[in-house]
Design a protein around this nucleic acid. Structure first.
Length: 624
RNA sequence: GCCCCCGUAGCUCAGCUGGAUAGAGCACCGGACUUCUAAUCCGACGGUCGCAGGUUCGAAUCCUGCCGGGGGUGCCA
């Protein structure tokens, strides 16, 4: 056992050092307690008056050994060696039922900051990085991206970035809805239009979207209306009218179904049109992803169509190994603890989305080597994933090459609501087009920008507005706890006041501005790189302590798939910087060494903030 | 019917896996600008953490039961 000494190795994480010291102390007080069972419960203190850190170890340990908590705390304090890390402790360090309050030595904080001030910012990649597969975005062919895709894309990308930042191997997978009957309907429709003289090369995604909706309604038979009319005795004319429409719908449906068969069997005409639809859709959607600063590109597309040749063998495998069974004509997998069986083949022999997802798990774990597979998908699909995960587990499709089960996670998210508390829709009740929504955010941002910073104009203004708008929209989406619904409000996210994306950008702008000013003043900013930290004001000490938390925040946010933790941290950091900046003159300071210390603190804060925003996928600006 | 999610200040939301007097932002009120960018900072106001039990030194957090809102419930995705 080697206890890291701050003198030799440098303190990277004060709480890790404290953890070791407390373990040593507790071991000597309670020799019968195996060291690996000791939990020191070291956490940052909530309030400065309780010191910088606290240990809550005394209460549970005292209970276990039948002692008084405060008495045990006193013994731990007597035994502990805090040399080089914290102020000496005494009776007054014990508070309440047995909290032990710890105040770090100023030198320990400075040392730790110095250790953090490296290119990696204190985050060390694992020796053998696990592979994480992130399912995100998931657009559908012939449909424009709408608000429903925003969260999957933005949150999914942030989760992927978090794991990348941790040094894991990340594989993004956009499960594009590019297969099945709905697509066949559009293919059929497009072929009919082409026969009527439409030039496929001129078709836009918006047109495809319209055709998609038309095809849907044309194929929808109003059988329920007829049944109802028969029941209550409808007017013969109405009945006849309805029956005619059903006949039409059935014809459309039949054509779509045979088009699906043709498409599935590789009919060249069908495939050519399908490919065109695919290209039109993906080029528009990937453009929107790029605009959102979401790293979703062509290489991440893994549409349902790519599983078409694997479905049959998956089903056969499940039959052969008696994992699936017949039930009322359908083929299902029954799993313990889930009432609803997972249907993997319909009575008519067709496959379903559960079948595709089974094949996807097999590929993601078996072929891609995923140790963790994260699905960033709407919470309404929670039952579906519960079923599919259980079925895949029963089939052993989640078994990684090393024999361990991969972890399958549904990182679900809630709905975006309008101001009325209902799911956000357009005036006409349709899904809100995502790029329209982004356009509006940009124009609002640009209006505010021209008002607040009239000196910024033209192209630069537009570019800044674009970045500010994306930051506003994304930060709002990421900052809310994933599973919750939230109310979308341009006014709030673009008010640029308080806990918003623009606030974070503003803090960074001020930091960057400091260094521009420093350069203008002829201050050698290169010399600050190794300047000793002199943390004399409460606000700069508070900022320093916030900075030191960064590595553990990245870890917590990634492993729990909770980007909102990063957002909360980024806001706290920006806020801590603003207080510091208000209270501590940096350039307007005559003390050279203090100025150097503060400049270095600004630089480090800037780098951490930048890194946090980068990890969330939020763009930054130099001016605003 | 059954299953899942949510319920915290007037509004929008946090609460680091059970810790101290539950925190921010907005709104409202009072302060700080010949600015290191006031898109900021400082202060004041504001809560029976849906309700009722339970677990224990200690519960917004864990368990049970209600109430309210949303979603889902074998052959759509």
């Amino acid at each position: 056992m080697t206890t890291q000494t701050p003198e030799s190795a440098g303190i990277v994480d004060p709480s890790a050092v404290l953890d070791e010291r407390f373990k040593d102390a507790i071991s000597s007080v309670l020799p019968d307690l195996p060291r690996e069972q000791i939990q020191t419960h070291i956490t940052p203190s909530r309030q400065p008056k309780f010191g910088d850190f606290q240990s809550n170890c005394a209460m549970p340990l005292a209970k276990r050994f039948g002692m008084q908590p405060r008495e045990l705390a006193a013994k731990v304090i007597e035994a502990i060696d805090v040399t080089g890390i914290a102020e000496p402790m005494n009776e007054s360090s014990i508070a309440g039922p047995g909290f032990i309050n710890i105040t770090l030595l100023p030198s320990a904080i400075s040392d730790a900051l110095g250790s953090l001030d490296t290119p990696q910012l204190g985050i060390t990649p694992p020796d053998s990085p696990p592979t994480v597969v992130v399912d995100l975005c998931g657009v559908n062919l012939a449909k424009q991206m709408h608000v429903g895709h925003l969260r999957s894309t933005v949150i999914g990308d942030a989760i992927a970035r978090l794991y990348e930042r941790m040094g894991y191997k990340v594989i993004r997978q956009s499960h594009v809805g590019d297969w099945g009957l709905p697509i066949a309907m559009v293919v059929q429709k497009l072929i009919e239009r082409e026969d009527a003289g439409l030039d496929l090369q001129t078709v836009t995604l918006a047109q495809l979207n319209t055709m998609y909706k038309q095809a849907q309604s044309e194929c929808k038979a109003e059988t329920k209306a007829v049944q109802l009319l028969e029941k209550v005795g409808g007017h013969p004319k109405a009945m006849a009218e309805l029956e005619l429409r059903i006949e039409n719908a059935n014809e459309h449906m039949e054509r779509a179904k045979s088009r699906l068969v043709a498409l599935q069997s590789g009919d060249s005409e069908s495939v050519r049109v399908w490919q065109r639809i695919y290209d039109i859709t993906m080029s528009a959607c990937l453009h929107t992803c790029a605009r959102l600063h979401a790293n979703v590109t062509d290489e991440h597309s893994a549409g349902e169509s790519t599983y078409r040749d694997e479905l049959g063998s998956v089903v056969q495998d499940l039959i052969d190994r008696k994992i699936a069974e017949e039930d009322d004509g359908a083929l299902v997998v029954k799993c313990d603890g889930i009432k609803e069986p997972t249907i993997i083949r319909k009575r008519d022999g067709g496959y379903l989305y559960a079948t595709t997802d089974m094949a996807a798990i097999k590929r993601r774990v078996g072929t891609l080597g995923g140790d963790i597979v994260v699905y960033c998908v709407d919470s309404r699909q929670s039952l579906h994933f519960k079923q599919v995960f259980a079925a895949a587990h029963k089939a052993g499709y989640d078994k990684a090459s090393d024999g361990h089960d991969a972890s399958l996670v549904h990182a679900m998210f809630g709905t975006i609501l309008g101001e009325d508390g209902k799911p956000l829709k357009s005036r006409s009740g349709e899904n809100l087009n995502l790029s329209d929504l982004l356009d509006e955010a940009v124009s609002r941002a640009e209006a505010t920008l021209s008002e607040r910073s009239p000196d910024i104009t033209g192209d630069e203004r537009h570019q800044i507005a674009e970045a500010v708008a994306m930051a506003a929209v994304k930060y709002t989406d990421l900052a809310i706890e994933r599973v919750k619904d939230y109310i979308f409000s341009f006014d709030r996210m673009l008010a640029f006041e308080g806990d918003t994306g623009p606030y974070l950008l503003y803090a960074l702008v001020r930091i960057r501005s400091i260094f521009r000013k420093a350069q203008e003043a002829g201050i050698d900013t290169g010399a600050i790189e190794s300047a000793p930290f002199d943390l004399r004001e409460p606000s700069e000490k508070a900022l320093a302590l916030k900075l030191l938390r960064y590595p553990s925040v990245v870890e917590g946010a990634s492993l729990n798939h909770e980007p909102n933790r990063m957002c909360a941290y980024a806001y706290e950091l920006a806020s801590g910087f603003s207080s510091f900046f208000d209270q501590c003159p940096v350039l307007k300071n005559d003390d050279d060494s203090l100025r150097a210390s503060r400049l270095r603190l600004c630089a480090l804060t800037g780098r951490v903030l930048e890194d946090a925003l980068q990890t969330l996928g939020i763009p930054t600006v130099d001016r605003m």
